[in-house]
Simulated assay, not measured.
Amino acid sequence: MIAGKLEITIKINELPQPKDIENGWQHFDLDCDRQIISATAKVKIWKKLTDAASNYSQWVGAIVGKLGQQAEQGFVLEKPNIQVFERKPKAETTSALGATS
C-alpha cells in the first residue's frame, strides 16, 4: 500500500453568505448535493472571491481543501484555498452547413 493525499475541490459561481469571525476571517457553508460543507477563509482568500464577484460578470471559483471533521450533515473543509477564474461567454459560431445562400 502507498500513501496518498486526499483533497476536495468544490466549484462555485456565487458568493457564499459569510459569518464574520475574528480578525476578518469569514466562515461560510456550502450545500453540495445535500452535503453541508463548512469552511473558514482567511482575509486574503476571501478577498479573491469578493473581487471576482465585483469585477467579473461571470466567474467560477474552485475551493480546494482537506477533508476535515465530520459534521451532522456533511463535513468541515480544512485549510481551504480558492482560485477564481473569469468565465467568458461562449462565442456564437455559424456553421457552414447551416448557412443558406
Results as ranks from 00 to 15, higher is better:
M1Y: 02
I2Q: 14
G4Y: 04
G4D: 12
K5I: 13
K5T: 11
L6I: 14
E7L: 14
T9K: 07
T9G: 02
I10C: 09
I10E: 04
K11Y: 08
N13E: 12
N13A: 13
E14H: 11
L15V: 05
L15M: 03
P16S: 10
Q17P: 01
P18D: 13
P18V: 05
P18M: 03
K19Q: 15
K19N: 03
K19P: 01
K19L: 10
E22L: 13
N23S: 11
N23W: 02
W25E: 13
W25K: 15
W25P: 00
W25D: 08
H27M: 06
H27W: 00
F28T: 04
F28K: 10
F28Q: 15
L30P: 08
L30H: 05
D31M: 13
D31R: 08
C32F: 04
C32E: 10
C32L: 06
D33G: 15
Q35V: 12
Q35D: 11
I36D: 07
I37K: 05
I37L: 09
I37Y: 02
I37D: 05
S38F: 01
S38P: 01
T40D: 15
T40A: 06
T40R: 12
K42Q: 11
V43S: 08
K44L: 15
K44F: 11
I45A: 14
K47P: 05
K47R: 15
K48S: 08
L49W: 00
L49F: 01
D51P: 03
A52K: 00
A53Y: 04
S54F: 02
N55S: 14
N55Q: 15
N55A: 11
Y56I: 03
Y56V: 06
S57G: 09
S57K: 15
Q58R: 10
W59L: 08
G61D: 08
A62R: 09
A62W: 03
I63M: 12
I63H: 10
V64S: 09
K66F: 10
L67H: 06
L67K: 07
G68L: 12
G68T: 04
G68A: 09
Q69A: 11
Q70G: 02
Q70A: 14
A71D: 04
E72R: 13
G74K: 01
L77D: 06
L77E: 02
E78M: 06
E78P: 00
E78A: 11
K79T: 11
K79P: 01
P80D: 04
N81I: 08
I82H: 05
Q83W: 03
Q83C: 02
Q83D: 13
V84E: 01
F85L: 03
E86D: 03
E86P: 11
R87K: 14
K88P: 01
P89H: 04
P89D: 12
P89M: 05
K90A: 04
A91H: 07
A91W: 00
E92G: 02
E92Q: 13
T93Y: 02
T93N: 04
T93D: 04
T94N: 03
S95N: 13
S95E: 07
L97M: 09
L97I: 12
L97P: 00
G98V: 01
G98W: 06
G98M: 07
A99E: 05
A99H: 10
A99F: 07
T100D: 04
S101G: 10
